[in-house]
Amino acid sequence: MSWKTFTRIFKLGITNFWRNRWLSLAATLVMTLTLLIISIFAMMTLVISKTTDSIRDKMDITVYFNDSATVDQIVSFQHQIAARTDVKEVRYISKEEALVSFKNQQAGKKVADLIDPNENPLPRSLEVKANQAESLDQIATFLGQETFTPMVHVISYQENRVVINRLIGFTTFLKKVGWLFSGVFVLISILVILNTIRLTILTRKNEIEIMRLVGANDNFIKVPFIIEGLLYGIIATIISTMFLKIGMQIITPMMNQYLGMDFSNQMTNFFSGNFLSIFGMEILVGIAIGIGCSLISIRKYLKV
């Protein structure tokens, strides 16, 4: 195909888009909405799973031992825990280490001097990290077994489990809702765009018939509709990315106020750090829907 032919076909596509501008506008807006919804859910899941990851990383179960427990008991216990597949790491914290980290804490500084290292009241402990937050529950049950109770003073997980479970539940819920909404809107935009292209094919029926009769190259008949679909995708991506950027600028101060922390940097960093993947995802989805619908309509309504 020559450059001249290409520009002529491209011009035909743009002319179509413009001639049916209200239809095109409707199709583009539905597509914009779809892309927005997909990106908002994708971003929310990304932010929350990042937060969960960092909390998860901090989240562990700490088993504090009675001073009566022997070193042998503790070592064998540690081996048993480490042998579990859902456990990522088990760390032994001695009385000395416990004292050091206690001294490093703000609240501990004042009382730390009162503690005699030889009469250290801080318990020895095992810090257990899980591979997945979801398995913390099983691990806790394992640790809470009766065989271990004589040497165990307290298991700290109990205090966190509600928060952990809520967070995990929320992420799972959000993912499900995200998939559902995205799916529904992808479906709606496919239906709207299929119909839009069908209508533009109908409004150009005479022109297509004439093109056929004068022996038009097939590209002239088909490609303009593909360009039209492509335009919906590209314009919708640009608009929805703009909305996303503006939305972030509105939401960030609100978040700062609500949480009493300055999030501006993190949000901007997050957005610019993930801009390419968000934009890339949008344009891929947009173009796939646009071109896919054009091809289907062409096959259905442009029979030779």
Partner: peptide, 20 residues
């Protein structure tokens, strides 16, 4: 079967344009 939004010249030229 002329295209109503195109001039006489454009109608004839169109037949050549779409044939490369």
């Amino acid at each position: 079967k002329l295209l109503p939004q195109k001039t006489v010249y454009e109608n004839v030229a169109f037949a050549l344009e779409v044939c490369d």
